[in-house]
Lab assay of single mutants.
Amino acid sequence: MSIQHFRVALIPFFAAFCLPVFAHPETLVKVKDAEDQLGARVGYIELDLNSGKILESFRPEERFPMMSTFKVLLCGAVLSRVDAGQEQLGRRIHYSQNDLVEYSPVTEKHLTDGMTVRELCSAAITMSDNTAANLLLTTIGGPKELTAFLHNMGDHVTRLDRWEPELNEAIPNDERDTTMPAAMATTLRKLLTGELLTLASRQQLIDWMEADKVAGPLLRSALPAGWFIADKSGAGERGSRGIIAALGPDGKPSRIVVIYTTGSQATMDERNRQIAEIGASLIKHW
């Protein structure tokens, strides 16, 4: 067993022997301040990774656009098919120029040779490549099948209805392509620590998230040296922004954090800054 596999296998073990965790309302004060600064709703939840206990939450059962955070769930569904012998990570998928959609920095470079399922998941999570996500959605049967996968996990809230990039439209009061912070946090925890996926697939999923290259201005910008984070960000229309993450000190994750916002007129930089400040408060009061 590799060191990384050992780390993920012992996530519940280490967490069980940690000192009790206590909620700190100071972080919620910052979440509410972010709402004021952005002029928009902000949803927040913080779960203990081992027990699933909610440590703090704000608007945990209000719907927010998922945006690209759905790509972690998508690759979880792909990995479940791999575990069941219905898919192979090494299978190569070929596609054409007509398949390319807006923001496809990886797939646009491989029109000639195609990409493997493993490479597509890596591109979808680490670079948020939209064509990679659409190609992977095709392998599982489309958005409705991802929703069905989530329902089978016990998540009857999260739903995907459309493809990239239309799913980022974020129309107010439109339930399409949305989740709730509580539902997303619980589902992410199941994917990373539950028995739904094999140990190898859980490790692969967290490795992809740990290698995320496009979430630097968010929670990662607030992390002290030595902290662990595996995350996936999302951005959408109407001032929408979000991030889902597993993080913790001492090089291992111990909490799940989900943050979503929508309806702001603020710039992307300002949305990023507010999420980073929430992260800084979380870490300060850990």
Rank of each mutant, 00 (worst) to 15 (best):
P165C: 09
P181E: 00
I229D: 01
D155P: 01
F228W: 05
Q204M: 14
G85L: 08
P217S: 10
S122I: 14
E102L: 12
N152A: 13
L282R: 01
G251W: 07
G216S: 09
D99V: 09
W208P: 00
G90K: 14
D212S: 07
S80G: 11
G114H: 05
T187F: 06
K30I: 09
G236F: 01
E210Q: 13
L49R: 03
A148Q: 14
R189L: 10
D155F: 01
I3A: 08
M66K: 00
P105S: 05
R189P: 02
E277W: 06
S264P: 03
D174N: 06
D129G: 00
A183L: 07
T179V: 02
D113W: 07
A40M: 09
S80T: 11
W163G: 09
G85P: 01
P253Y: 10
T261M: 15
R159M: 07
R162N: 10
E270A: 12
V21S: 10
C121Q: 02
G90Q: 11
L137G: 04
E87R: 02
D129Y: 00
L160I: 13
S68E: 00
K284D: 14
K53A: 14
F22S: 15
D83V: 03
W227E: 00
D250H: 14
D36F: 15
L223A: 10
V42M: 10
M153R: 07
P249G: 05
L55Q: 08
N134D: 06
A77E: 09
E108Q: 11
I283G: 04
F6N: 09
F228H: 06
E87K: 02
W208H: 03
S128A: 00
Q203L: 10
R271V: 10
L218N: 03
R273T: 12
R162G: 08
H94C: 09
A40C: 08
D113P: 07
D99K: 08
E210D: 09
L111D: 07
G114W: 04
R59A: 06
N152G: 13
M184A: 07
A148N: 14
L74Q: 02
Q204A: 15
G43V: 00
S80V: 11
L188K: 00
Y44A: 02
R159A: 06
T261S: 09
H24W: 09
T186A: 14
L223K: 07
F149I: 10
V78N: 02
A280G: 12
G251K: 14
A34E: 03
P249H: 07
T267M: 11
M115T: 04
R159W: 06
L191K: 01
G90H: 12
I283C: 10
D174L: 04
L38P: 07
S122L: 15
S2A: 09
V258I: 13
K109M: 14
R7M: 05
G194F: 09
S233L: 02
M209E: 00
F22H: 15
R91G: 05
S96E: 12
L120Y: 02
A84D: 12
W208G: 01
G234Q: 01
T158K: 00
Y95T: 03
G142T: 07
I278P: 00
F58K: 07
V257R: 00
L55S: 06
P20C: 05
F17V: 15
D129T: 00
F14N: 02
A182E: 10
L73E: 03
A9I: 13
D174E: 08
K109V: 12
E175Y: 13
L19R: 08
A225V: 13
P172Q: 12
C121Y: 00
I278N: 00
L160N: 07
L136C: 04
E61A: 13
F6G: 06
M127C: 09
V257P: 00
Y260V: 06
L196F: 12
I259A: 03
G90F: 10
G279N: 03
F149T: 08
V257S: 03
T262L: 07
I93S: 03
I283A: 08
A123N: 05
P217M: 14
V214W: 05
I278G: 00
G154K: 07
A183G: 07
K232P: 00
Y103M: 06
D269Y: 12
W227H: 02
G114K: 04
R238Q: 12
Q203K: 12
Y260H: 01
T179L: 01
M66I: 10
F22D: 07
G216V: 07
W208M: 08
L223I: 12
I45S: 06
N134C: 04
K109Q: 14
H5L: 10
A230C: 14
P25G: 08
E119Y: 03
L160K: 02
D36Q: 13
G234S: 07
E175H: 14
V21N: 06
E237G: 14
V78P: 00
S96P: 07
G142A: 04
I125A: 04
C121E: 01
L146H: 02
L136F: 00
F58E: 05
L89D: 05
I259N: 01
G141C: 05
R176G: 06
K32H: 12
L191S: 03
P12K: 08
G76L: 04
G52T: 05
R41P: 10
N272D: 09
P217W: 05
E87L: 11
L247I: 11
F149S: 07
L136T: 04
L47I: 14
Q86N: 11
F64R: 01
R220A: 04
Q97H: 14
A235N: 05
L192M: 15
D269C: 11
F228V: 07
R189G: 12
Q88L: 11
D207G: 14
A9F: 12
S254N: 13
R81E: 07
F14E: 01
P60D: 15
D177F: 01
N50R: 13
V31G: 02
M67Q: 08
E108K: 12
P20A: 05
I259G: 01
A23D: 05
P217F: 07
F22M: 10
F13R: 02
E164G: 00
R92T: 11
G194Y: 08
A170T: 08
P217R: 09
T107N: 03
R220K: 06
G154P: 04
L55F: 10
N272A: 05
R202C: 06
S57A: 15
I93G: 02
T112L: 15
G263L: 06
E35C: 05
A148M: 15
R241Y: 02
A77Y: 12
N130S: 05
L223P: 02
R63Q: 08
L199Q: 14
H285C: 11
Q86G: 10
A15W: 15
V82D: 05
A200Y: 13
V78S: 03
A133G: 12
N173F: 13
R220E: 03
T138Q: 15
A124I: 05
L74E: 04
D129P: 00
Q4K: 12
A34H: 03
L74C: 05
T187R: 01
G242D: 00
A185L: 02
S2I: 15
A9Q: 08
P20Q: 15
